[in-house]
Design a protein around this nucleic acid. Structure first.
Length: 658
RNA sequence: GCCGCAAUAGCUCAGCCGGUAGAGCACCGCAUUCGUAAUGCGGGGGUCGGGGGUUCGAGUCCCUCUUGCGGCACCA
């Protein structure tokens, strides 16, 4: 019999019969190895342990506790979920059930909706199935057999999936006892290896093939881990994330609120607005010298949006306004029936600003910045706290330049982005190039050209800054041009797309803008749209969640509270606050007739970074007892020392550099 | 927008088979001057999200609208 050579992770080599399965090889080494093997990695590819090995390869046996097994546990768990659901509700059709970050889901087509009480029932059935520990058995079926089988069972979605498998690829079936599923695999050797460290979390609606026009399915989400400890850790992490929810913190810190009459719009409280303004002031300083800050109208004639293309593309998501009397009397032609749009973007406004007056090549690049408040009629189901709203402020800018200047402008923007993110404590940044979408405007030649420039720039950016990871988002560009998407990773590992740089050859053409070049000819500039924070509202939401409300001193709306222990210290407390404010600090007093314990608790819950406690002693010695948020220790120092230290710490990072 | 769930005092929540609302915190008043995460006592506060229906009677059951929550879809 022909032999092949397997190479093990430790470099050891072993000759085995050609066509032997992974399990057979493991058994030949040691029965215990075979017993704990749930899968194998062959030349870097995760496979069933029962698959035959046909040629020389690097092999690694995967145990249930190996990191490679985690996706198998989750995927197997999805299969068991599907079996349990079909057990409990015969006639339910199964569709797909992939592994996702931290878990899995399965989409079902079922006439009756799931009920919250169903989850524990399903979970119970799953544990029973797992307890039976049926082996996973793979079979390769003929396409016709598979189609006939699923058709006969009324599994119409599976039939579609079989049809979608490319010719020449096997139609694989995985059996677990009586139940089976069409599946690419791989799987572990039996359902028993899934273990018990899983939990069904929630269910929701979803769409077949992600198509909102298509059939609506019901999705069940679960999480699964190798051990109870890992599961518990994950659930604990979810609880922690919930505590940081900016909607909850916003209320506790008295920053903002939402109410029924203004769906998707923010009521900024005084403290929240102070935070907002601290962000705007910072960004404004970062623009100084390079950008001209402008302000374009909030409401502009519909025709402008037709020219820009927004009306055609995003009409459903735009707010349109007429005069109130025109609304009441829509047929009265004597009244102004003109339709205006609330701006959803700043760019058409900035184009008008560029157009005003003749521009020379000497003026370029023209960089117009605006903290523009835009309105977008977002779908009701999309709204989410500060993260997705219908009115938000962008730190927007448009650069009008020549094609020759494009690369340098993109790099300049990139430098600013990275510097800003660093100031807010974000170290890891991913920049992805989003290329032409299916639905778009402009010629292919234009897209080729623009994408090529950005590809080149992306390579340069990555070469110049080791913090930048890069990638490509195929087909994710905007309708008018390709873009860079900047994604930040927050303190608890979540990713947020914030910045964007978009190259646009279209808008200049649509609006017919030009500059006079050195040769006296009219030339069309290129436009670069760029935002760093993106939506300031959302960016603050991210900051609040990332810091858990423990904002750095320079951003905290109330930087310190001077709290008295006895009323004898009131006068001194007032003097201290006066001195602190004189130093530019945002400070409040708490002279209430309450115990110091009460005050400490209250200001801690409100996330005030610094508590300056003053009693009789401090008043007599002109000192303060400094207690930092999150610490139960306090340090007594002179008022002057405290002011100097806080003033230094509260200086925004950009001002410290100068 | 779609699927599911929910909405009771400022906040967090209880309220059974339908019988006309309750707690804690917060707020107000009084007492207390106290050394680093809740001082005590007293008081006020609700068209039970809006509208309609069933019923002798609706916070509770039904319909509908609005808003929120979890996803999906969308995100210029």
């Amino acid at each position: 019999m022909a032999e092949i050579t397997l190479t093990f992770p430790d470099g050891a080599k072993r000759a085995v019969p050609k066509g032997a399965s992974g399990i057979e090889v493991a058994k030949s080494i040691a029965p215990s190895l075979a017993k704990r093997t749930v899968a194998m990695v062959l030349d870097g590819v995760l496979m069933d342990a029962a698959d035959p090995i046909e040629h020389d390869a690097a092999i690694k046996f995967v145990a249930r506790t190996d990191p490679e097994a985690l996706e198998l546990i989750r995927h197997d768990c999805a299969h068991v979920l599907a079996e349990a659901v079909q057990d409990l509700w015969p006639g339910t059709q199964v569709t797909i059930g992939p592994v996702i970050e931290n878990g899995f889901f399965y989409d079902f087509a079922k006439a009756e909706p799931f009920h919250p009480d169903d989850l524990p029932r399903i979970e119970k059935r799953m544990r029973e199935i797992i307890a039976k520990s049926a082996p996973f058995a793979k079979e390769v079926w003929g396409r016709d057999k598979a189609k006939a089988f699923f058709e006969e069972k009324g599994e119409h979605f599976k039939v579609e999936l079989v049809d979608a498998i490319p010719a020449g690829e096997d139609v694989k079936i995985y059996k677990q006892g009586e139940w089976l599923d069409l599946c690419r695999g791989p799987h572990m050797t039996s359902t028993g290896q899934i273990g018990n460290a899983f939990k069904l979390q929630r269910f929701s609606g979803s769409y077949w093939r992600g198509d909102a026009q298509g059939p609506q399915l019901q999705r069940i989400y679960g999480t699964a881990w190798a051990s109870d400890k890992d599961l518990a850790a994950h659930l604990h992490m979810l609880e922690e994330a919930e505590k940081r929810d900016h909607r909850k913190l916003g209320r506790e810190m008295d920053l903002y609120h939402f109410q029924e009459e203004g769906p998707g719009t923010v009521f900024w409280h005084a403290k929240g607005w102070t935070l907002f303004q601290a962000l705007v002031s910072y960004m404004r300083r970062r623009l100084a010298g390079d950008y001209d800050e402008v302000n374009a109208p909030q409401v502009l004639d519909k025709s402008l949006w037709e020219t820009s293309g927004h009306w055609g593309w995003y009409q459903d998501n735009m707010f349109a306004v007429k005069s109130a009397s025109a609304f009441e009397n829509p047929r009265d032609e004597a009244r102004d029936q003109r339709v205006f749009a609330l701006k959803p973007m700043n760019c058409p406004g900035h184009v008008q600003l560029f157009k005003f007056g003749l521009k020379s090549y000497r003026d370029l690049p023209v960089r117009l910045a605006e903290f523009g408040c835009v309105h977008r009629y977002e779908a009701s189901g999309a709204l989410h706290g500060l993260m997705r709203v219908r009115a938000f402020t962008q730190d927007d800018a448009h650069v009008f330049c020549t094609e020759d200047q494009l690369e340098a402008e993109c790099l300049k923007i990139n430098d600013l982005m990275m510097s800003v993110y660093k100031d807010f404590g974000f170290q890891e940044v991913t920049v992805k190039l989003a290329t032409r979408p299916e639905k778009r405007v402009g010629t292919d030649a234009m897209w080729d050209h623009a994408e090529n420039i950005l590809r080149k720039v992306l390579a340069k950016m990555a070469a110049e800054d080791s913090r930048i990871k890069t990638g490509i988002n195929e087909g994710e560009g905007t309708f008018y041009g390709p873009k860079f998407e900047y994604t930040l990773r927050d303190a608890i590992g979540r990713e947020w797309q914030c910045g964007t740089t978009q190259v646009d050859f279209n808008l200049p053409a649509r609006f017919g803008i030009f500059f006079v070049d050195a040769d006296g000819e009219k030339k069309q500039p290129v436009m670069v749209h760029r935002a760093i924070c993106g939506s300031l509202e959302r960016f603050l939401g991210i900051l609040i969640e990332s810091t858990g409300g423990h904002l750095p001193l320079w951003l905290a709306p109330v930087q310190a509270v001077v709290a008295t222990i006895v009323s004898d210290a009131d006068q001194y407390a007032n003097e201290a606050v006066k001195a602190l404010r004189k130093a530019g600090l945002r400070v409040e007093t708490d002279l209430r007739n309450e115990k110091i314990n009460y005050k400490v608790r209250e200001h801690s819950l409100a996330k005030v970074p610094v508590l300056l406690v003053v009693g009789k002693r401090e008043a007599e010695e002109r000192k303060v007892s400094v207690r930092r948020l999150g610490s139960d220790k306090s340090t007594v120092m002179s008022l002057d020392e405290a002011i100097a230290a806080l003033k230094e710490e509260a200086t925004p990072p950009d001002l410290k550099r100068d």
